[in-house]
Write a protein that binds this DNA or RNA. Structure first.
Lengths: 350, 350
DNA sequence: CTTGCGGTCGCAATCGTTTGCGGTCCAGCA
DNA sequence: TGCTGGACCGCAAACGATTGCGACCGCAAG
């Protein structure tokens, strides 16, 4: 009983060679009876193959890297939870790397993941290490990007349905009669920031409303942005009747900003947020959101990765997928209090 | 340029044997000049040692398992983030396992971690797999438990300062003049649930106040518990003047419960929570909390684990550590509105 | 000149597993 | 009985690194 039991031990006890034992455990390569006998013995001994030795030989580590910016963001958190569960069920383990959206940290993470012989990668890229990711992909390590696109490389990518989501959200507010809709959004460097802004603009255009840059406040994904956005958007001249907050980090700041100004939701101002998280449903009033579906996104990312790991994916490279967003109406939006007549919207376009 | 560059490639280019190359890279085992020359060549080639091969020989995988119940809880989330950063800096990678507080999933996670030859473990145990953890420890894999104690095994454990934290929190409310303090707390099966309750009781006893079981509502770590707690504690006869909510999941439910009843914090009711999280500071009013210091807890867990991995830890087995909790006063607590005179508290005891 | 010694380096074994290749054995058929 | 073929199984070589041991070299001391 010294250390873990190896294949040699199993073979010795079964009075066969190591290779036979190996084949018996693999299955189908020996006679029925020896196969069953050896499997029984292995089970009795509690044999567990040494993954390092196997990996050395077969160049497989059963390790998948997950590279995200943080775990505070609900989308990343859900991604990690779902990916972990699904991959474990498929016999893989998850190596967690956190980059803080910093290209240098991302590069280091990629290097160590390569050294660890990770077999696949799910990553929300910073956008600065595209070549490196492409190299991994060429070297046979499937890489699936999520949430953000890396413009500098052609990689399979799974994005949220941000243009449609922001469009649907804006449209919802328009349909309620709002005409001045403030937007607090992520910066244009990010895929989501750009796309959510574009969805907002498209909905406005369709409704025949002019785009007013003074109604848009862009900033980082943090509560302070929401607070600053409140100041910029609410303390000016003509105040918007609705606020569309396009990420949940900023939402916290907005809630405080509104409270500080004594503004009630939805009586004085309608509030719609992007990205659902537990806190929002529990607010009073419960905040309506555009749910970007992080769980579905994670599921698809894992599905695609597993398919490619098994070599079953179609040869078509670098497809891009979208996860549909959907509006969850709760209690934070209602028609504006003012005399503005309800807007007649044109039929939905695509 | 086929596949990754191995030690052989380096050695060949440097015109030395593989063993010399290995020693040169390890450092201090060859002459100064060859050492530098080979290290230069290795760098130029972009050599990265194959961790699997190294691990096979040295029985080290540079992998640390992190086993937690989920990532939604702020303490677990911070634990994961901090552990990831610290361990990566120390040359380790983090294998993430999520158990949902389910002993069966925990057991499976432990089995796969053992197979992956994880070198160490940071785990928040369910309490049902103590023997297995002890076996790992005996087999030379250091195990550090966090947040919860596993009663069925003697393991190094790092706990939050829950008895003191709950004591300090309750005392704070008492000092403000509250006498009827409602407590919403985790169930007694959990270390933290038990200990926070005990801290609360001790503070009450010291103040000479009777313990009233009708003021305590215990439940799972989820928002619904807070909502139910509101119903149980606020809709009864004599209403408490302060609420101490001993976990942040329940806090969400409490906030809604208070809003539904039209109760203002802190005007009608003081509110104190346990475990800080971003949302609480951004509430209006900002919620006072007892911060259980998850970052410090994670730091210590990593420190202890690294020490033991390097074999530098003292031989004394199964020490238990506590992370001091501290009160963060924000704006959700004030003296009760009623005529209750301020309470003269006895000097703080331990 | 020989011997001893410290400093370098190469040989080869080793970690545990997989796998190509060849050998053995037996059944079946002529 | 002899031959063929297929089913099983064992030998040994990998995978890429680490490491004990011994060979070799040069230099100083005897």
């Amino acid at each position: 009983m010294d250390g873990p039991v190896t294949l040699r031990d199993v073979a010795r006890l079964a009075k066969v060679s190591v290779s036979t034992a190996s084949r018996a455990l693999a299955g189908g390569l020996t006679s029925r009876e020896t196969e069953q006998r050896i499997q029984r013995i292995a089970a009795e001994l509690g044999y567990r193959p040494n993954i390092l030795a196997r990996g050395l030989k077969t160049r497989s580590s059963r390790l998948i890297g997950l590279v995200v910016h943080n775990l505070a963001n609900a989308s990343f958190r859900v991604l990690a939870e779902v990916a972990q569960a699904r991959l474990r069920a498929a016999g893989y383990q998850l190596l967690l790397c956190i980059t803080a959206d910093d290209p240098a940290q991302e590069e280091e993470a990629l290097a160590t993941l390569a050294a660890q012989a990770a077999e696949g990668l799910i990553i929300c890229p910073t956008g600065q290490n595209g070549p490196r990711l492409a190299a991994l992909e060429r070297a046979g390590t499937p890489v699936t990007c999520v949430i953000r696109r890396d413009e500098s490389a052609e990689l399979e990518t799974i994005l949220a349905g941000d243009p449609e989501g922001a469009y649907a959200g804006t449209r919802h507010l328009l349909a309620l009669g709002h005409r001045r809709i403030g937007l607090i959004v992520g910066r244009a460097e990010t895929t989501s920031g750009r796309e959510r802004l574009s969805g907002y603009r498209r909905a406005l255009e369709e409704a025949g409303l002019p785009f007013d840059a003074g109604l848009v406040h862009a900033g980082r994904y943090e509560p302070e942005t929401g607070l600053a956005g409140c100041r910029a958007l609410l303390d000016g001249g003509e105040r918007p009747t609705a606020l569309f907050v396009a990420n949940h980090e900023s939402t916290l700041g907005v809630l405080r900003g509104l409270a500080e100004r004594g503004l009630l939701v939805p009586e004085h101002l309608s509030l719609l947020c992007y990205e659902d998280m537990p806190g929002l449903a529990w607010q009073r009033p419960a905040i309506s959101v555009v749910d970007n579906g992080p769980a579905a996104l994670a599921e698809l990312a894992v599905d695609r990765l597993l398919l490619r790991l098994r070599g079953e994916a179609s040869a078509s490279p670098a497809r891009e997928y979208r996860i549909g967003a959907r509006l969850i109406e709760r209690q934070s939006c209602r028609p504006p209090a003012s005399r503005t007549p309800s807007l007649r919207l044109p039929a939905e376009a695509r």
